[in-house]
Design a protein around this nucleic acid. Structure first.
Lengths: 151, 151
DNA sequence: ATTACTCCCGTAGTCAGCTACGGAATCAAC
DNA sequence: GTTGATTCCGTAGCTGACTACGGGAGTAAT
């Protein structure tokens, strides 16, 4: 019932989390992860909880949350704000589904392009370009503006 | 068969495309959109093709393509580089399919989490937070690193 | 033809999210 | 107990994608 409580230095933690030391320090500065107490004249030590939090950040980021949004999510961590967390999750779900739809549109177009291209290389019209230009791929304006999502 | 060929200034174009004038100029500098000839002692005018290209950029960007990738995609447009276009297209197709798969994974995970979250709202543990920390959401390492995808 | 907007163009600043640097302190191995 | 890697900490730099600024030229409405 008890996982062995490792105690690690920041370097070990970084390796375990698959990120650089400097990234962790950056997250500390951003307030995303806590900086443990430093024993008098010694070095800080981190535990599996810290690792869990880094996993959380990485995963949430991969899910399309910005660091600010992740910070928000983390304040919900006490469990008393499940509703807010749900709403946030639902919003992301919506945009993820829109993306899937758009990408499927692009996939079709690209596939068609490649087909045509290898078949009859005389064609001047590029179906990929055409469909993106003419809005065959539709997306909601709501999510479009504002640089964010990174994949 | 013929759409009315509007001729617009950069400001009008920008409004039509839902972006700032400076953004368009930035794209011109990046070589993503052409700068039309400037009539002697006058002002540049843009047509619907330019608008189409901006739509293209916006959509592709929303889908997680970087401006560099979009530039590549745009080289397919002329239709004359059929071989290169095909290869590029195939590469993009692969990455698009990866993205779709990743996003579908995310969708499932998020959906499950939101379900749980709204189901047992008495629970002090928020399943969304919990599962992100404990790695219930699994993802492929392949796409994880490298900051990019914007949503 | 005056006023008010818009365009042009180059350069500079911003923001997110890192990544690097440098010098002193600490630790781990031999 | 010296050597070589890590940690610590602050500050500075980088990349991608914009966004703002400023001053002169063009345009549109009255």
């Amino acid at each position: 019932m008890s996982k062995k409580q490792r105690s690690m230095t920041i370097g070990t933690l970084a390796r375990a989390a698959g990120m650089g030391v400097e990234t962790i320090r950056y997250y500390q500065r951003r307030g995303l992860v806590a900086e443990p107490e430093k024993p008098y004249g010694s070095i800080r030590h981190y535990d599996d909880q810290a690792l869990g939090r880094l996993h959380f950040i990485r995963t949430a980021q991969w899910l399309g949350f910005s660091l600010d949004e992740i910070a928000e999510l983390l304040t919900l961590q006490d469990g008393t704000h499940c509703n807010e967390a749900r709403v946030l999750g639902e919003q992301k779900l919506t945009s993820v589904r829109q993306k899937i739809r758009s990408l499927q549109g692009i996939e079709k177009a690209l596939d068609g392009l490649v087909q045509e291209c290898s078949a009859q290389r005389m064609n001047v019209e590029c179906p990929l370009i055409a469909s993106l230009q003419h809005g065959v791929v539709q997306y909601s304006e709501t999510e479009t503006s504002g640089r964010s999502n990174r994949a």
